[in-house]
Design a protein around this nucleic acid. Structure first.
Lengths: 218, 218
DNA sequence: CACTTATATTAGCCATGGCTAACCATTGTA
DNA sequence: TACAATGGTTAGCCATGGCTAATATAAGTG
């Protein structure tokens, strides 16, 4: 078993990956000093969880990646579980899961996955890695890069920013929402979209965090 | 928020209380050295969580007791929640709750209590403290001290020893079981009991861990 | 009362994981 | 090419929470 801090570093590296991650980027992501990040990277390299090239950056080894995926799995299963059983909203579950993920045994993880019917997406639409780190559903596209005038289905919304999430929720955008891009602002990249008959404007920064798939016609 | 270690010390002190608890007793309970226990007791005294009389022992202050009760509440709510939602057995839930209790926010605690209908007993029959540390159900008696030939209802079984718990479970003894003491062994204090029409022998060590109340005739 | 035994404390070490301050390396631009 | 600026590392400090070994106190016994 690894400590909470080690697990947090691995998870951050995974989220920032798959390429080499710089010390500053990692430090900023975890809100610690660069020195702390360097120290931890050296320790992770010692444990063969990352490869580290001094002054160049670090990247997860296979072993480190599996460990990171295990935490991500626990996080997303917990979000799903809390949402299903307690009816907590998409904005609330992230912070709780962020803490609980480090306290979830393999046994409980399995019991929860079983209870939920081994889901492959969490309430934000993010893919849930399998018990051995298998990841599917990697084909979703950022909304900001999607084609105009096609029927798109929202697959993923971000999970870690309650304010963005509330905005999306209030505007009827969550996994499963069907929308069309009508036009794209040439200057700031913002999108004009149509949800049902309602028109909305989505800023480019938010649109880059929403992922879509093409609606299956049947 | 206090650290996991601090919370564990407070919980142990509460379980071993309410009188002064010796350093060795505490150290044994937490499986740490006496030196570690002494050091922590000094720190807890610093934070005004315990009163410490050197070479005499420590006892929780009101502040420390409330903190301990908060952890106990989380523990017992979690046991109840895991049992209800995931159907985990009485033998499994303790160890999981032991870890999760430190990662449960006040918010989630409330959501779980609400979901469960604010229960006052966990699956082992232990009373669940209220959100502000209120404790009722303190009148249950140890089975070993109970009178012969009266209809007794099992209220509490121990929560922290899976082997004892399995034995009890296999012999049909859990919260709600109704039994009578037929006779008590004069030499070792073991009990001969009748559950329904079935006779069982319960060792005095186990009987001291089972608590009963008198069956209400109605 | 003296002496043994059990219990408690202190001193000092270690690992973890933060931090600041100071010092290196890399990069981009004048 | 020189020299900021940015990014990365090192040194050295701190708190937490373990540990052992040595010492101090309390309690029980001849």
């Amino acid at each position: 078993m690894y400590s909470v801090a080690v697990e947090d570093y691995l998870k951050s590296l995974w989220k920032l990956g798959p390429n080499n991650v710089g010390t500053k980027q990692l430090a900023d992501n975890l809100r610690v000093s660069k020195a702390s990040a360097t120290k931890m990277i050296l320790r992770l390299a010692e444990k063969e969880l990352v490869d580290h090239i001094p002054y160049k950056g670090a990247s997860l080894t296979k072993k480190g990646e599996l460990e990171a995926l295990s935490i991500v799995r626990k996080h997303r299963l917990l979000e799903t579980f809390l949402s299903q059983t307690l009816g907590l909203g998409r904005e609330e579950i992230h912070d709780e899961a962020e803490i609980l993920e480090h306290a979830l045994s393999k046994n409980l993880e399995m019991a929860i996955a079983d209870y939920l019917g081994n889901p492959t997406r969490d309430p934000h639409g993010h893919p849930i890695p399998g018990p051995n780190g298998e990841l599917y559903n990697e084909t979703d596209l950022p909304l900001c890069d999607s084609p105009i005038n096609m029927s798109l289905i929202v697959m993923q919304v971000p999970d870690d920013d309650p304010s963005i999430l509330s905005w999306l929720e209030n505007n009827g955008i969550h996994p499963g929402t069907i929308l069309k891009i009508i036009s794209r602002d040439k200057f700031d990249g913002g999108l004009n979209v149509k949800i049902g008959e309602v028109k909305k404007r989505i800023s480019s920064s938010i649109a880059s965090l929403v992922k879509i798939s093409f609606e299956v016609e049947n």
